[in-house]
Design a protein around this nucleic acid. Structure first.
Lengths: 207, 207, 207, 207
DNA sequence: TCCTAACCGAGACGGTACGTCGCGTCTTAGG
DNA sequence: CCTAAGACGCGACGTACCGTCTCGGTTAGGA
């Protein structure tokens, strides 16, 4: 509902928007998304399953991609989980990464995200929307943790934070999207360990 | 041509396959791919531009995805570039990564690859084909370099090679697919540096 | 419109069928039919000329044959011309046959009908539809005239009415479909004369 | 074989035409014709079933229609049956009509002929070929019989022979092509009887 | 005994049309 | 003003035939 809510201050006249339809549409989209790929689901099918009309969907969501993005967000409504300060970089990153990977692997969201990533390639506007809600949302807490670690002197002051964030998140997206190996908890711990080691390497510190 | 070539030893009967058509089709696919996204290009358009008939395309490529994969491979025909032994892990990884990122950034292949990644989510067979030709092809030289580094004692013997490879390649795919930051040479150098630092960290070695 | 109209009493929901499209499609079909043979016209061409979409055509007519049949009927909408009672068999048959042959010869319907006849050979359902709307529609007034003549004693009571109707209509269809000779008014008069002679022959009456 | 035989006097060099293929093709065409309609059979299917190549078919028959016509003629190779002089018009017509209707009804040739008739509508050259081999072939003996009857004084000297032939054959083609009633022997006898009555009607003679 | 012309099968080729499906828009009636 | 229903124009899908075109082989007569 995050995306389709355009809060106008005007005291809306006429029949109000049906919450029932809205929920049914997002639910239908989510369900179909887990069964098929984004390109395999049709607006007709969503409308059908939701018992809604296509016109109603298009009235509130300008495209299939944004509908799906909204459906995804409404499924993951919780979970922003502002960075907890555990006192160490390793601890902070664990707190960020482990719940996130668990969320990613409970259901086949990988293909949904992959499809959104693909859609984003041809639609700059949607790309921005997607990045704002998916990528940055996760990176910002990570950035906070890195800055804290830098202030504590745990990592170098001249650390390339953006590259470091890519070093952290990249491996997960890589496995999620390419599927060449599973996204296990063990893998998550290993990556966090490597990232911490990379950034806190004495060799770098001395430079 | 890698994919559509099924070398049968049997003495081919009937009219032989037209190499001209084959090339024209792959070229048309490549060209269109650089102009539009995978989902925006139609088989009709490819056939039209290639001066071929749709039937001919479907005779040799079972799906748009495999055609596009083939087109991509034929564009990048060269470039496997077996791992050069420079004597150091950092040198080896540079030799692998820098030419590859240069190749990725000369043309807008990002969206093509993203679309292929998306397609792979819903088609296990294509996913395997894609991974074999795109992902593994790049990982194997990296694996070789890591094994050499391990044998030289440059990195720990118990290094998780698969995770390390994801640590190396993940950040590049991340930026390529999400587009939140550019794939610069500077970025490549930084990531290689971090990866080397992560694996050769004295803290790890002593353990 | 006769064929594609399924009058349901239910209070029609949703957007109503577009009469404009319907008319344009039938018109396009008629026009193309007069220029080419049934097998030369394509649904694409009909859709194009009608400014309609193929889906709309297929929504209302299950096959090209039924569309063409409908187009033909809508062109000949009038003209059933219930048998007029002129007091004599010869007069009645003239009233039936002459306007009909004029209708048949004003435009090149011959090849259209021939094509429909051919199509009917392979599709029993369409054959029935065709016969009901084309053949029987004309035979019934003829049958009425014959029965009247029989009641008047003009022809034998034991006349084989079906054979007599074939004797009457067969020669016209023969020339129409085979084209070995023209369907002139003179020919029509001659056939009617022969048929009346055949049925009212004293030789037969006495038997 | 009648149609595809262009007897050149030149002493053909090279490999002679394969009679085996020719027979197989005609047989395949006949078989498929009895199972499906002309428009349902494809040259590919004929080639396949005959174990021949499409090129071979097109080398000898310029179109599907002419191939089918040839196949039909080769099935009915015999049967021209020059008019027998029985001494009476009724007898002569019986001799002509009864064997012919028997031939027409033994197998579902009706639809084949109907399809040829339809094809003839759009191809004047084929139409002529068809009429020459199918229609005229039957009409000529009929014409002979009528002329004899006229000379004997059995029918009027001013009889319109062409119309009379249409009166005779039309009803059969009508039932054959429209299928509204069966082509029984009883029907044949009735039509012949009516035709004789029509032509020999005293009313006409005296006029 | 070769040579070579004409045939043969197999099967790929550029096309055209098929009938279906999904898109995003529209036009109804009704809450 | 919103909703469900559903028809609309559009355009791509993957398939089936069309008639043509190479191929490698085969089968004759003439050299």
């Amino acid at each position: 509902m995050a995306l389709s809510e355009m809060t106008t201050d005007a005291p809306r006249r006429g029949r109000p928007r049906s919450e029932r339809s809205q929920r049914a549409i997002l639910r239908a989209a989510s369900d179909l998304l887990l069964e098929h790929g984004l390109s395999e689901i049709s607006m007709d099918a969503v409308a059908d399953r939701a018992g809604a009309s296509k016109a109603t969907i298009y009235r509130w969501w300008p495209s299939k991609e944004l509908l799906v993005l909204d459906a995804l967000l409404s499924e993951w409504a919780s979970g922003t989980a502002d960075a907890v300060d555990t006192g160490s970089l390793a601890g902070d990153l664990h707190e960020l990464i482990l719940p996130w990977t668990r969320q990613l692997t409970t259901k086949p969201w990988g293909r949904v995200i992959a499809a959104l990533v693909a859609s984003a390639q041809c639609d700059a506007q949607f790309a921005e929307e997607y990045r704002a809600h998916f990528v940055k949302l996760r990176r910002e807490p990570g950035r906070t943790a890195l800055v804290r670690a830098s202030e504590r002197g745990e990592i170098a002051a001249d650390t390339d934070v953006d590259a470091a964030l890519d070093l952290l998140y990249g491996p997960f997206y890589h496995r999620l999207l390419h599927g060449h190996a599973p996204l296990t908890e063990r893998f998550a711990r290993t990556i966090v360990e490597y990232v911490v080691a990379a950034l806190s390497s004495p060799g770098r510190e001395r430079r």
